[in-house]
Design a protein around this nucleic acid. Structure first.
Lengths: 141, 141
DNA sequence: ATAGAAATGAGAATCTTAAGCATCAGGCGG
DNA sequence: CCGCCTGATGCTTAAGATTCTCATTTCTAT
């Protein structure tokens, strides 16, 4: 229930926050821009301001409820933080986003950071390619 | 010589282009924002518009002369393409950028893409941490 | 040198995101 | 259950980054 997540995060339970959380939870793609969330809310008849969407997402991020991802392009993408760290693979054609986790890579990253004299805090790995899904507009090309 | 690179890239040899290429070649950090390049040109007495810097960098990118990197934050960072692919490790405190290449990671990436049914075209890996350099503002923290 | 095409500079425009501020709503005391 | 207080919201405006427009200038080939 959204209410619980919000309270746990120390955020007052308000309609906009619940709705946004709900959209993030129910999203098919699980990776949404602020704009996309905003439009979805408008479409479903909610009265909400884009500023609120950004504000709430930023608060969610600070609270650890969502992650803000910077893929190529200019818009940030938000995803609900479901616990496990993972990296991303994105189709250049259809925009599909998939998640993966590879312990070998994770390990090598830690090792590399150490070798370079860094205390690693975070990392971002994104693979870009063309997916071979039958719905992909450029399948097989 | 900058002239050669420009001609090879099929770009008309102009003063702004040569100057920008030169700055990219001689830069200590090797990772510059458009703004930084612009300011450096202004400081050295050149008359140039910010729009030109962006335009030229975009052309350079299209020509394969430079790469545009999207680290955290909103500004893109440009680096001269010296041939070899590499990934980046960035200090959260001092902004230092270092490059690395790890064949194990590269291999795993190809493997993962294949397993997920993607024809991989590109990837971006950035490690964020705190460097232990003596000049780093938060050394040892 | 000269014309034609392409490049530049300055400023306006655009896009994304973050304020500022007046109004509204959720949570608590009565 | 009602009303207040503080924080939340919505709208508008702003700020930062990048692109576009267009008149003017610069290359390159002749």
């Amino acid at each position: 229930m959204e209410t619980q997540n919000l309270k746990k995060a120390g955020l007052k339970v308000t309609l906009p926050r619940m709705k946004i959380l709900q959209i993030l939870e129910e999203s098919e793609t699980r990776h949404l821009t602020a704009e996309a969330i905003y439009r979805e809310l408008l479409d479903s008849g909610e009265e909400i301001g884009l500023a609120t969407v950004y504000r709430v997402l930023t608060q969610f991020e600070a609270a650890g409820l969502v992650s803000r991802l910077h893929f190529e392009g200019n818009q940030a993408v938000f995803e609900l933080d479901r616990g496990g760290h993972h990296d991303h693979i994105i189709c250049n054609q259809c925009g599909r986003v998939e998640e993966f986790l590879d312990e070998t890579i994770e390990q090598r990253q830690r090792q590399i950071a150490k070798e370079h004299g860094y205390r690693i805090k975070d990392h971002a790995l994104v693979l870009y390619g063309d997916c071979l899904d039958e719905d992909c507009p450029r399948r097989g090309n």
